[in-house]
Design a protein around this nucleic acid. Structure first.
Length: 154
DNA sequence: GCCAACGTTGGC
DNA sequence: GCCAACGTTGGC
């Protein structure tokens, strides 16, 4: 099983939204690398750190689980959606996604600063300067460490 | 295929 | 609001 980190802005869709919805299609990703992770590498049961970006403070707030095989992002076909992609067709869809299921909200948020300050998290992709990617792979040891800092045990 | 211009992300 | 980083677009 692989581990991931998924970013979301809490004002748009945060961990509490996922907790309420239980399960959510991760729509609107329009970056090829992030898409490739969902389309090619994610497997049902994979766990992901849920990360709040563009907020104060940014940080890891919980855990979500890949809940299905990849399928075409429906918003790409919807002319009324802000994620509409006129160049995508149903025969040859450009954007694929998976559903994420709520697993847990950390008792304690693990702030970006805490993560940067933790020597055992050195090398995490999300901590590297200039990383804007909304989905990044996470090593198992880093995943465990973040969960521990968050006060959550699987 | 190069690269300048432009748009977006996201921490601060 | 600023700006560094970086992805995408489009002219050539």
């Amino acid at each position: 099983m692989r581990h991931w980190l998924i970013k979301s802005e809490p004002d748009v869709f945060g961990i509490d939204h996922l907790a309420k919805a239980k399960k959510e299609p991760w729509s609107g990703v329009r970056n090829y690398q992030a898409r490739n992770y969902m389309r090619d590498d994610m497997k049902p049961g994979d766990l992901a750190i849920f990360y709040h970006s563009s907020t104060t403070p940014p940080g890891a707030v919980g855990v979500a689980k890949v809940a299905c095989e990849p399928y075409p992002d429906p918003t790409q076909f919807d002319p009324k959606s802000e994620y509409h992609d006129p160049k995508s067709t149903k025969e040859n869809p450009r954007w694929m996604l998976v559903d994420f299921e709520f697993v847990a909200k950390f008792p304690n948020e693990v702030t970006l600063q805490q993560m940067k300050d933790d020597p055992s998290l050195e090398g995490m992709v999300v901590l590297q300067k200039g990383t804007r990617l909304s989905i990044t792979p996470v090593e198992a040891k880093h995943f465990k460490r973040v969960c521990k800092l968050g006060g959550w045990k699987a």
